[in-house]
């Protein structure tokens, strides 16, 4: 029970610190879960994000469910998921019930423009960490460049890139490439 509460609180903290959607959550997860609590490795976080890209639902929730499951099976998955959505529910209810014109408020706009600049920098750091544990040889570099270029040029759904990468990975293995 104590472990479930720990999962709930850790993910509530992550939910409360995430500004701007699933990707903005990555630097917070790397800090809270990988570095401070060591509940999973950098590689595992990327694996979870990969699965989250091509499964239904909100990526932040998918990642919380995965990490929760790894710690304490199904009960852990539910505790982590409830944790990550808890701050949203409370904050949005308060705004919806009591505050009108929140998003048009000058202070909110100024603060949020500042937050966006900071989150941009935090996401750059997150990408550098992903690069270090994800792109390790010429094959990885090739995949990165192809996916990056095609994704910038054409606004395709991530699902196609994920599925194509799985095929590429299996061909690479069949051709004698080293997998880990």
């Amino acid at each position: 029970m104590k472990d479930l509460l720990k999962l709930f609180l850790a993910f509530a903290k992550i939910g409360a610190c995430t500004f701007g959607g699933g990707y903005a959550m990555l630097p917070i997860i790397q800090r809270e879960i990988v570095e401070d609590r060591k509940w999973c490795t950098e590689e595992e976080v990327i694996n979870y994000f990969a699965v989250g890209q091509c499964t239904p639902g909100v990526i932040a929730v998918n990642t919380a469910t995965f990490i929760g499951y790894k710690q304490k099976k199904t009960a852990g998955a539910i505790a982590a998921t409830l944790g990550v959505i808890f701050p949203s529910i409370i904050i949005i209810m308060i705004i919806a019930a009591f505050i009108s014109g929140f998003a048009e408020n000058t202070y909110v706009i100024h603060a949020f423009n500042g937050i966006r600049a900071a989150v941009s920098a935090l996401v750059v750091n997150a990408v550098v960490k992903l690069w270090k544990s994800g792109v390790k040889n010429a094959f990885g570099l090739g995949i990165f460049l192809v996916v990056f270029t095609l994704s910038v040029m054409f606004k395709l759904s991530p699902v196609y890139f994920v599925l194509a990468s799985i095929v590429a990975g299996i061909i690479y293995y069949k051709a004698g490439g080293k997998v880990e």
């Binding site: 997150a126 992903l130 544990s133 994800g134 890139f161 994920v162 990468s165 997998v179 880990e180």
Partner: peptide, 14 residues
């Protein structure tokens, strides 16, 4: 093998 290719893919998507 799948995850070996998925990791650089996710890095590019992010």
């Amino acid at each position: 093998a799948s995850f070996t290719a998925l990791r650089p893919c996710v890095c590019a998507l992010v």
